[in-house]
């Protein structure tokens, strides 16, 4: 076994060169480079953590704003509904008033027309009486040769008209 057979002649060389090269490894790589690499990793980890925190904060803010927007939106909708309802009620009231006014005007016109019709009928009736009176006078004179005065004839006509 060379490990034992050569021990006496090689141990010092092994020790020396191991000290040299493991020393280089430790001081140059272990102490010099590894901390920098770990520092990079730490920086990356903290950057990722920061970014995640920032993203979370941004999302929370967005949620908050959305909530506020929702509240505002609901208020606005409520307000809009109020306005629409008011407008509807207003319009209904106005149209009711208009309709009432129109109704009144129509009623008035109807009444006037009825009055006019009544007057016309009375006038016509008077005319008929007058004509009938004259006709009665005429008929009596021609048939009986009796001259009937106008009031008498008129009275007779009125009675006849009243009895139908």
């Amino acid at each position: 076994m060379p490990q034992i057979a050569q021990l006496a002649e090689t141990w010092s060389s092994q020790f020396f060169w191991l000290a040299v090269f493991f020393g280089i490894t430790f001081f140059l790589i272990g102490m010099g480079m590894v901390p920098k690499i770990m520092d990079t990793v730490d920086q990356r980890d903290s950057k990722i953590a920061d970014d995640l925190a920032a993203a979370k904060a941004a999302r929370d803010a967005a949620d908050e704003q959305e909530e506020a927007w929702r509240v505002r939106e609901n208020e606005n909708r409520e307000k809009a509904r109020g306005i629409v309802n008011a407008a509807k009620a207003d319009a209904a009231a106005k149209s009711e008033k208009t309709i009432a006014a129109a109704q009144k005007r129509l009623d008035k016109k109807l009444d006037e027309a009825e009055i006019r019709i009544g007057e016309a009928r009375n006038a016509a009736l008077a005319e008929i009486e007058a004509v009938a009176t004259e006709a009665a006078q005429d008929i009596v004179q021609r048939v009986a040769g009796i001259k009937v005065t106008k009031p008498t004839a008129a009275k007779a006509v009125k009675e006849t008209l009243a009895h139908g």
Partner: peptide
């Protein structure tokens, strides 16, 4: 002795 051996070379 600190001869530069094949062992040292591989180190």
């Amino acid at each position: 002795n600190i001869a530069f051996t094949n062992s040292a070379l591989w180190m």
